[in-house]
């Protein structure tokens, strides 16, 4: 393997933003993330608030006075955001912008709150995968020899394991009240279990890439020189290997986020991921499909969650590609 170490070069940012499509992608992503982040402070109904009178209403939207019980609940769960919302908007709220579902819940609120969960799970799972993958690849690549062979063999084997199935089993096991209680005692709720599990099975490619980089770096002249000067293993890793890894890690991380978000959506779709009353984009997409009947087609329930997923994952993938190209001039033609 003769990977050219991807290193942070000057001008990465310049090359990145000069690429067509990157700027709009960045803007879209920033908007999505910002909206999800401030969702509790926006003048919208709560995502779980049902209103049978407006069930299955199409997109529209009108200002109205918010339900005081919901506001109270919001103040309990998000005191800071609730205060901000009361300051800016008072008790007014905008309901039904993207329509409502069959229980009369506001779709816009559900998409935004669902975005919080989907993005959070995506980020944390990616982080988990990064820690495991970088660690694994680093050790294998740096120590080399038999250990490397063994560790990479494990990765090869793991590629052929139907992880989806294992995850379903694992989640089924972890639904046990006794086990769940023990996990909660350790500070692990269902959501953390979810991103740990998703992250725990998404590190294989990262490990392979990092190992390749480390192998190449280990033989690089400046590392040999450091070794000749008497630097120890940990010091070489810290001072010379890690700083030269971040490029490839960042690129691959950007591409991992959409992958794990897809995985979360997949699991939630099957009813195995985020649990109601929690919302995620996977759950919304699944509910949207359920709403398609000959009696009446609530198209907005299919289109808007799909659009949210498409926008977010699409821009992430676009940025990942752009970042890879920007970091690796060899690929830039």
């Amino acid at each position: 393997m003769s990977a050219v170490p991807l290193r942070a070069r000057p001008g990465v940012w310049r090359r990145l933003v000069r690429r067509p499509g990157t700027r709009p992608a960045l803007v879209v992503l920033a908007i999505v993330v910002a909206l999800a982040a401030v969702a509790p402070a926006l003048p919208l109904p709560l995502p779980s608030e049902m209103d049978a009178r407006v069930a299955s209403a199409g997109p529209g939207g009108a200002w109205r006075v918010a339900d005081p019980v919901s506001l109270g609940q919001l103040a309990d769960d998000h005191p800071w955001a609730a205060a901000l919302r009361a300051q800016v908007f008072g008790d007014a709220e905008l309901a039904g912008v993207l329509g409502t579902d069959d229980l009369g819940r506001d779709l816009l609120a559900r998409v935004l709150w669902g975005g919080r969960v989907s993005l959070l799970v995506g980020l944390l799972a990616t982080l988990v995968s990064a820690v495991v993958g970088v660690g694994w690849g680093l050790v294998a690549g740096y120590v080399g020899g038999r250990l490397d062979q063994l560790m990479m063999r494990v990765v090869d084997v793991a590629y052929s394991i139907p992880f989806l199935f294992v995850v379903i089993l694992l989640i089924a096991v972890l639904r046990d009240e006794e086990l769940a209680g023990r996990m909660r005692a350790l500070g692990l709720d269902r959501l953390s279990v979810l991103y740990l599990v998703i992250g725990g099975i998404s590190w294989l490619t990262m490990a392979r890439i990092v190992r390749g980089q480390v192998l190449a770096l280990r033989e690089a002249p400046f590392v040999s020189a450091a070794r000749a000067l008497g630097a120890g293993g940990p010091r070489i890793v810290r001072a010379h290997v890690l700083p030269n890894l971040w490029g490839v890690v960042v690129v691959y991380l950007t591409l991992t986020v959409p992958r794990v978000m897809l995985f979360e959506a997949f699991l939630s779709f099957l009813g195995l991921g985020v649990e109601p009353p929690g919302v995620s984009w996977g759950i919304l997409a699944s509910e949207g499909l359920e709403s398609l009947t000959v009696l009446g087609v609530s198209w907005w329930l299919v289109v808007f969650p799909g659009l949210a997923l498409a926008l977010t994952l699409g821009t992430l993938n676009l940025l990942g590609d752009a970042l890879r190209d920007a970091l690796d001039p060899r690929l830039v033609r």
Binding site: P258, G282, A285, V302, G306, L309, A310, G314
Partner: peptide, 11 residues
């Protein structure tokens, strides 16, 4: 590559 197959199926 960004769309889950169930969203495509839905559309």
């Amino acid at each position: 590559i960004s769309l889950p197959n169930f969203v495509i199926a839905g559309l």
